[in-house]
Amino acid sequence: MEYVHSQGVIHRDLKPENMLFDEDMCLKIADFGIGCEEKHCDLLSEDPGTFRWMAPEMIKHKAYGRKVDVYSFGLVLWEMVTGTIPYEDMTPIQAAFAVVNKNLRPTIPLGCPSPLRALIEQCWSLLPEKRPEFWQIVKVLEQFESSLGKDGTLCLAQNVIAGQDHKKRLTNWLHKLTIANPELTSTRK
Rank of each mutant, 00 (worst) to 15 (best):
V99H: 05
C36Q: 03
E57K: 06
L104I: 09
L27H: 06
K176E: 14
L110C: 07
S114G: 09
K189E: 15
R131E: 00
P182N: 08
Y3H: 13
K15M: 11
D13S: 10
I59G: 04
Y3V: 11
K39L: 05
K167F: 07
A180M: 10
T153E: 06
G65I: 02
Y64V: 00
N159W: 09
V100G: 07
M19C: 15
Q136D: 03
W135N: 04
D151E: 07
L104T: 11
T107A: 14
C26I: 15
L126W: 11
C26H: 11
E17N: 14
G163P: 04
E23M: 11
L127R: 14
Q143K: 08
A157L: 05
G49Q: 01
L184E: 07
E129V: 11
Y71I: 05
E23Y: 12
K67C: 00
A55M: 04
E142C: 12
Q94P: 02
E183V: 05
F134H: 01
T178C: 10
K60D: 10
T84H: 11
D31I: 06
L177F: 10
E142S: 11
P86W: 03
L104G: 02
E57Y: 04
H40R: 09
G49Y: 04
M54V: 06
V99D: 06
D89T: 12
M25Y: 15
M19V: 15
F97K: 07
E121W: 03
Q143W: 11
D151S: 13
K28W: 13
W78F: 07
S45K: 09
R117M: 08
D42Q: 06
W53K: 00
T50H: 05
F73D: 02
E37G: 03
C26K: 14
W173I: 01
K60G: 05
T171D: 07
F51M: 12
I161L: 08
V4T: 14
K102R: 12
L14G: 01
A162Y: 10
G8L: 03
K60A: 15
A96N: 07
R117K: 14
K15A: 15
E88Q: 14
A157E: 08
L141K: 09
K67W: 02
T82S: 11
F73Q: 05
D24E: 14
K168E: 12
T107Q: 13
T187M: 14
D47L: 08
L27E: 01
A95V: 04
F134T: 03
L170K: 01
G74T: 08
D151T: 10
Q143R: 12
N159R: 10
C26W: 15
H166C: 06
M19H: 01
I161A: 08
V70Y: 00
S186A: 13
M1A: 14
E121F: 02
P132M: 00
P182V: 05
